[in-house]
Amino acid sequence: MALSRPGYSSYLTIAWPSPSEFQSLLHKLAPCTDFFELGLPARNPLYDGPTIRSTHREALRKVGSRGEALRLASRAASEAGARFIVMTYLWEHGGPRGLRSLVEDVAASGADALLLPDLLFEYPGLLVEYVDAAKNNGLQPAFFASSKFPHHILRLLAGMKPLLIYLGLQPATGASLPVAVKSNVALARELIEDSYLLAGFAIRSPETAIAVIEAGADAVVVGSELARLYKAGGAEAAAGLACAIKKALVARRG
């Protein structure tokens, strides 16, 4: 199963701002979104910035269990005809002990992949077990890497034929620091060759998205800015940005 190049992904925290609003927001974004990244509400979303952290805190109050959250994600995506991957932090699920049941639950939800941002930073020894579990359950592996990452590990990940490698462009989601984004993306592209490179963290406009794609990414994902726009102007405002980015990417592809 291939993802479109260039591609656009919307990030939403499952059940935020409420289960029903999450569903309608996803539905609204779906026409302009190639695939969704859906975050399981977390107690400590380690690598997220303030905006996404607040969505996690709010969502946790609205959804009772992992199963409930995954059923909601599955239903919302299915009704919108959308593809999705699930993002969550492994430590929230008991670390290594919780890996297998987590993979099984995510696979049962109909997701294409399970993205565990803390896998390689906190549990690097679990890499092979994660890949095996994913494949055995019909998922494709997906990996998260930062902009300060060992080159040999990026090459190793690319060799595992993942659905995607997600490069965090900034130190945290929504943070906008003066990082050398273009050169980091270009080098990551060189290191992972033709693996699918998804870039995210602090993409807020079609212009930024295009710049990141031109530097070498295959797709961009937007999360914090969608949440901010939704809070300020509702689903229309969030969809406006998603569709503007998608349109810019399509226009660039010609």
């Binding site: 380690l46 690598y47 910035g49 303030p50 952290r53 390689l120 930073f121 906190e122 690097p124 890497a145 930062s146 300060k148 990452f149 060992p150 080159h151 040999h152 590990i153 965090g168 130190p171 945290a172």
Partner: peptide, 12 residues
């Protein structure tokens, strides 16, 4: 670039 494992990032 050469660490045997990825460097855990700074976090809030």
């Amino acid at each position: 670039a050469d660490l045997p494992e990825p460097l855990p990032p700074l976090v809030d």
